[in-house]
Design a protein around this nucleic acid. Structure first.
Lengths: 199, 199
DNA sequence: ATGTTGATTGACATACAAGTCAATAGAAAG
DNA sequence: CTTTCTATTGACTTGTATGTCAATCAACAT
């Protein structure tokens, strides 16, 4: 009796949801939460705007889902570095490579993260989650740097400050990439960025 | 016959304009161009929303005035460093001190600048002006770093990349300051930031 | 064919904010 | 006290976006 099997429906739902999320990343990253019209997201996703509300209960809900995805990625990289083989320096290099790759290929997600933590337009629960998760990722980087110092591979100094500078630089580069893609070829790579922490 | 002298009116106008600009910096920096309601700016400035339109022709116009102010400040610092006494290293230190001071005391202006270059919600002329001015400031920093290298005070490497990293870090720190003022005490100072470029 | 189910649509009510403008306030000059 | 100018106000118009919902579509089992 079911006109479509349950898992077929499931698949369709996930596909559409993904479509809408991707479209949302594009539009939100450029326009911001408030300036984004649901109709634009729908158009970018190739659906009607009514359908967006079938999958997300509100514009803010869609935005929050995107923030979770972006933060999940950042967290995965920061935490994942600890499981990498090699020396602490190698792990830092691995992490920075992935982050810089993200800046080059998906600056949208970085912009969404930045909006999430700076804009009062985003609902407080979303914003607080973002700030908390950012702190967790930062902690992971602090540990990596401390290990590097213990191994004598990283210059002495407060690891919290080094982590802040590193992550701030990444964010700033993402802004630069978004503002002027022409700058991308001149961007530093992981090696250059890390070399600044040589002892 | 004039009920108030001409310069008295002039003074009042400038005062009000300043009030509205300051209020705008507060609200725009947090909410963004699109999410900001003119009524909020008016309330923050202690005036009616009608008066805002007496001084600025539109919300975008007010925003553009703020962007100009912020970019003017950045430019003043970047260019001004070249006129400072001492070694190239001293000049770099002077510039970073001012910038970090700005991050601490007026993160709003940095957020406005970031919005100006990243958000499609801001009118293109404003955005292009912001991107152009940012490039000019970056050029000034590049020259400073090149001088430092010539004097053997700065590590060898592409000065464009160093400038990018430096300015990106500043922007990222401004974001951090806005997101979580609790981080301010742990912020690096100009010395720490500069030490990463030691030869 | 036909019925059933859930995805999908788009017209609609509702709300809210930008920008306008006629009316007001208030300060000095006469 | 009256006049005269400019700053200032806030009701109003107008446009536009959100979120709802009844109607439609599309696919499959029977």
């Amino acid at each position: 009796m079911p006109p479509r099997s349950a898992d077929e429906n499931q698949r369709i739902r996930e596909e559409r949801r993904e479509q809408i999320l991707n479209a949302g990343a594009q539009v939100f990253s450029r326009k911001g939460l408030a300036a984004t019209r649901i109709a634009e997201v729908a158009a970018a996703a190739g659906t009607s705007h009514g359908l967006v509300y079938h999958y997300f209960s509100s514009k803010e809900d869609l935005f929050a889902a995107l923030v979770e995805r972006a933060l999940g990625g950042a967290m995965w990289v920061a935490q994942g570095a600890h499981g990498q083989p090699g020396t602490p320096w190698d792990r830092l290099h691995w992490m920075l490579s992935l982050m810089l790759g993200g800046v080059r290929e998906q600056p949208e997600l970085f912009l969404v993260m930045i909006q999430a933590v700076t804009s009062d337009a985003v609902p407080q629960p979303t914003r607080e989650m973002a700030i908390r998760q950012a702190a967790v990722s930062r902690e992971a980087v602090v540990r990596l740097i401390a290990e590097g110092q213990a191994a004598g591979q990283v210059a002495p100094g407060r690891p919290e400050q080094f982590a802040m500078i590193l992550l701030a630089a990444i964010q700033g580069l993402a802004i630069g990439a978004a503002a002027d893609p022409g700058l991308l070829p001149a961007f530093p790579d992981a090696g250059v960025l890390l070399s600044m922490f040589k002892p």
